[in-house]
Nucleic acid binder design. Structure first.
Lengths: 420, 420
DNA sequence: CTATTAATTTCACTTCTTGAATTTAAAGAG
DNA sequence: CTCTTTAAATTCAAGAAGTGAAATTAATAG
């Protein structure tokens, strides 16, 4: 059963990082595994895994869990049948030691700052939600606020500072993948701020900045193994329209910078977008655009800072489902815009998977017809056929979860490089 | 001077492939280098480089060249001044041994099959050009033709078959990056053919298939070191409109599959594209589209198979420069289409570099104004500012040259994995 | 002809990995 | 309750690859 290992993977030098890193990566990706399985999935020999893991356990990075009934359910019809104990020495599951350290993720969005703290194995310990007028903040206030939120999290979970391994900040907007500098965000009135440096100085931990769509893309890839293979593009529809790309389950492409797919233009004279230009996909599809358009002919409460709340968007959907033909038309237009976004993504990127996510998808039923019709006209049939499109109107928690994953990935990598 | 090497790169396991592979890669990328410099640029120690290179020399993969005046001109103002001999033992330059083997690249385009044979160091030995009605070929005839061309090349250069290390086939059209299967090409009437397998069986060598835009992108990255850093997107304008992406000088993204950027739609009711849909960027910008549109109001000779020749396109440009306002309008529209292609690329991909290449760019002077005007409206200013756009109306030779590079890269890698 | 300089190579040592054999912890059979 | 079987994990000796320090080599400078 444990057949010969693919020799091409046996290079003493291969994959990313040292072999220690590969073990950690495999555990991170596939959850608790026994040593045998680790050996198989990393391509290392049993003795190597044994030696490495015992050292990692000594360093408290890993720990053994009570021998549990582990069965390889992904394999060929092994017909093991009984999920319980098989004969032979039972496998000892190895886990990333949750106590090794903690990670904090912060999501900065329109009028909302969410914070989550997780242990080293990635399970959440606590989270908070702060509603605040984000556009009223200047650079200093924003920075202080983020630091205060992180501090509060540390305190709430009695985490000593030296246990904090990394901090991830997910931002709705444009992030420079190289520097981590934030260039622009609809949630903020300030631009081109470096949040990374002050936060790093305040806590002495790794700070990773990324686009929120990238974070969601990672969370989805982590939740569905099939999405973690090949190139997956996640299009986020909500307050804005963004996209994150994940290659083989990791954000190794563009390193946290999302695509500004929402600002592709559908025509030279379309509706006004808040980016200052006209005809952007976002200006047809994002929450604020739908609400704004609806208010031109419907009696709806004004949105604070042009940003409709969840409740207001729910109201809008309800009215549309009530059968107002003008509203129907608005959502149809949004469906076409969504189709164009998908079309551009497929044409340029040629991904294996396209995932439509975000709260904006809650109205997908009303966009569907126009979306499908337009998509068929807008993408080469060969390409469309070879791309799988998924619908995941994910909840907002996905952002912080994904950001935890992204930060853990970075932390793992730098730690392995340093310890080697 | 040879200061301490960055310790983070010293992992016994790092980067791609074994350390042997890294040496070959460095030589391939940076040309002849002395051992000292190899050690520095790979992060390996002198003894390691010494040992590895001596083995590689024994295997005839590398060879030493006559000690030459090598000076590190990229460094800080070392003010070495005299390019000639410095004191001390002179550095011995190492090169990839040209005699190690040979590589053939084939470019399949509309009515044209170009073939080139190069030695292991990448310098061209011979090439041929076959003009033939490619759309008249069926699958078998095409395959036989390609094999015959390769055979002719081997014979012309007296290359024994076992010396042929790899064959690269660049195709104008859609290539599946995973399987190398060709899905569709404007140059062919047949679709979904597997050229890779029969050619591999005929010669027993690696066969690599790629999109022609990818090949050009690689050739450009090889020619200009600045383009070999970060994400570079090369948009090819000519018989069609395609795009190739190169990351850090290699086609490691999508592995040879070009983007179908030419088939992004500019409106739901644009001109007819040969892909069968309407309003594609290509239908405004490609040679055939310009020529077709011009013929609706100008007296021009008909194009064979709807595909204008180079001479016909030259004539068209000449007429346009003569001042026909209708033709000017056609080229302006093309300029706008080009701007939209660039805009979509930047918005989705966020590349560091965008390169505009291909014969279609010879008319760029007439497109420029409309192009620039539209580009500014169509891309977020922040993004536009952070992207460098280059103009390289490269000659067709770039396709085969780039394909040689791509194939060499694949050959290097598999060889290193096998030998390790 | 000798000192100086810089590129390689040699050498002794360390680290990591591997195949084979061994040990260990459970299930099943008698 | 003991013995056999099975599969996981570890031990062991051997080997591969890398490293720092020191030696060697091939030039130039004086």
């Amino acid at each position: 059963m444990v057949d010969q290992i693919d020799p091409s993977r046996r290079n003493s030098a291969s994959a990313r990082g040292s072999n220690r890193g590969r073990l950690v990566e495999a555990l991170r990706r596939q959850g608790p595994l026994p040593r045998v399985e680790l050996a198989r999935s990393t391509g290392l020999s049993f003795p190597a895994v044994s030696g490495l893991t015992s050292r990692l356990i000594a360093e408290e990075l890993l720990c053994e869990t009570a021998a549990s009934s582990w069965s390889d359910d992904t394999d060929e019809g092994d017909s093991d049948g009984l999920n319980g104990r098989r004969r032979g020495r039972p496998a000892v599951l190895l886990t990333l030691n949750p106590e090794f350290g903690r990670i904090i993720a912060v999501s900065l969005r329109m009028n909302l700052i969410e914070t989550l703290i997780a242990d080293f194995s990635g399970s959440s310990l606590a989270q908070s939600r702060l509603e605040i007028a984000t556009r009223a903040l200047d650079a200093g206030a924003l920075c202080d606020l983020v630091i205060a939120q992180i501090d509060a999290m540390l305190e709430a979970t009695a985490t000593p500072r030296h246990r904090l391994l990394g901090i991830g900040i997910a931002l709705q907007g444009i992030v420079n993948g190289d520097t981590g500098r934030h260039l622009w965000s609809p949630a903020l009135s300030v631009t081109d701020i470096d949040l990374v440096k002050p936060v790093r100085q305040a806590f002495g931990a790794q700070v990773v900045m990324a686009n929120d769509a990238v974070a969601v893309a990672l969370a989805l890839a982590a939740a569905e193994p099939s999405l973690a293979q090949g190139l997956a593009a996640t299009i986020m529809v909500g307050h804005g329209v963004g996209m994150g790309v994940v290659v083989d389950g990791e954000a190794r492409w563009g390193a946290g910078a999302g695509s500004e797919i929402g600002h592709i233009k559908l025509g030279s004279n379309g509706p006004q977008c808040r980016c200052g230009q006209r005809g952007c996909i976002e200006a047809h599809l994002a929450d604020y655009a739908l609400y704004r358009d609806a208010r031109t002919f419907l009696d709806l409460p004004p949105a604070a800072a042009q940003q409709p709340s969840e409740a207001q968007m729910a109201l809008l959907r309800e009215r549309a489902r009530g059968g107002d033909p003008r509203l129907e038309h608005v959502f149809q237009q949004a469906g076409r815009a969504l189709a164009e976004a998908v079309a551009a993504t497929i044409s340029v990127l040629r991904p294996h998977h396209v995932i439509l996510a975000g709260p904006g998808l809650q109205a997908f039923d009303m966009m569907r017809r126009a979306y499908e019709e337009r998509l068929e006209q807008a993408v080469l049939p060969w390409l469309l056929k070879s791309t799988a499109i998924y619908l995941r109107p994910s909840e907002s928690a996905a952002i912080v979860e994904g950001m935890i994953r992204r930060t853990l990935g970075v932390v793992d990598r730098t730690r392995m490089e340093a310890t080697e």
